[in-house]
């Protein structure tokens, strides 16, 4: 086994995949603007990607806010700074944890579902059938999912922000001895518009990544049940990694002063 050959193969494979994803993304985005627009399919995907993700996103946000309050209280206690809890919870949730946790949860739920559905359509020739019926599969399958995910994610994150802060509030008032109205006042006074909007911008980008990786892996799945399984795994893993990488890049762009 030649080490250099292996490194070369991996490097070439990486660039080939990056190129293919970029071309796929380009095709998909350029298809968004061109008619026909499948409004009904977009509405259907808004339900499936957005609405049905609410419980899982809400629950994780609640517990994340709660545990954040607990940890900051314990950490802040070392400096006698435990009163900072409401501010840090609000900041942490709106800027980072709201979008990232929601993004990862939706990646697990939605990217997997998209990849499995489109992958099955690929291996059963349903995608070829679309083409023979004068329907562009990118427009019919990819565009509605992309549009729905980009719209849904900021809304989901706005809700996750509220529930996360509420989780911190519940823990803060119930077990850490904060006064409820002071907790809320500190939160509202401290949080700026940019804290929230930066999180919502991230959410939209994450939504794009989730739908794109689900569709790309589904479209390129082959070889029956095993291929669809692999596509589903790849969709979730690649979407999660890209979300975390994009999160770093977006944070450094949005908060560069």
């Amino acid at each position: 086994m030649n080490v250099f050959a292996a490194i070369g193969r991996v490097t070439l494979g990486f660039f080939r995949e990056t190129g293919r994803v970029s071309l796929f993304a380009g095709d998909s985005v350029s298809a968004v603007a061109r008619p026909p627009v499948y409004w009904w399919l977009i509405a259907q995907q808004l339900m499936r990607i957005g609405y049905f993700s609410l419980p899982v996103v809400g629950l994780t946000a609640f517990f994340t806010g709660g545990v954040l309050a607990l940890q900051i209280y314990i950490g802040g206690n070392r400096y006698g700074a435990e009163s900072i809890v409401p501010q840090i919870v609000a900041l942490g949730i709106t800027r980072e944890l709201g979008p990232v946790i929601a993004g990862l949860m939706v990646a697990g739920r939605v990217a997997a579902a998209i990849a499995a559905e489109i992958g099955t359509m690929r291996v059963t020739e349903q995608i070829d059938a679309l083409t023979t019926l004068s329907t562009n599969p990118i427009k019919y399958l990819v565009v509605p999912r992309l549009v729905a995910a980009v719209i849904s994610m900021p809304i989901l994150v706005a809700i996750a922000d509220s529930i996360g802060i509420f989780g911190g509030y519940v823990v803060g008032t119930a077990s850490l001895g904060f006064n409820g109205s002071i907790y809320l006042k500190n939160t509202v006074d401290f949080v700026t518009r940019q804290d929230v909007t930066s999180g919502l911008i991230k959410a939209a980008v994450f939504g794009f990544i989730i739908a794109l990786m689900g569709c790309f892996n589904g479209f390129n799945s082959k070889g029956g049940a095993q291929g669809v399984g692999a596509a589903t795994t790849n969709a979730v893993v690649s979407a999660s990694i890209l979300i975390l990488a994009a999160n770093y890049i977006l944070t450094s762009l949005l908060f560069s002063r």
């Binding site: 359509m121 059963t124 020739e125 349903q126 070829d128 059938a129 083409t131 023979t132 004068s134």
Partner: peptide, 16 residues
Amino acid sequence: VLKKFGMLFQGAALFD
């Protein structure tokens, strides 16, 4: 051109 064609797929390829 595709409007001239109809195709029956091996597994029928119906949209489930």
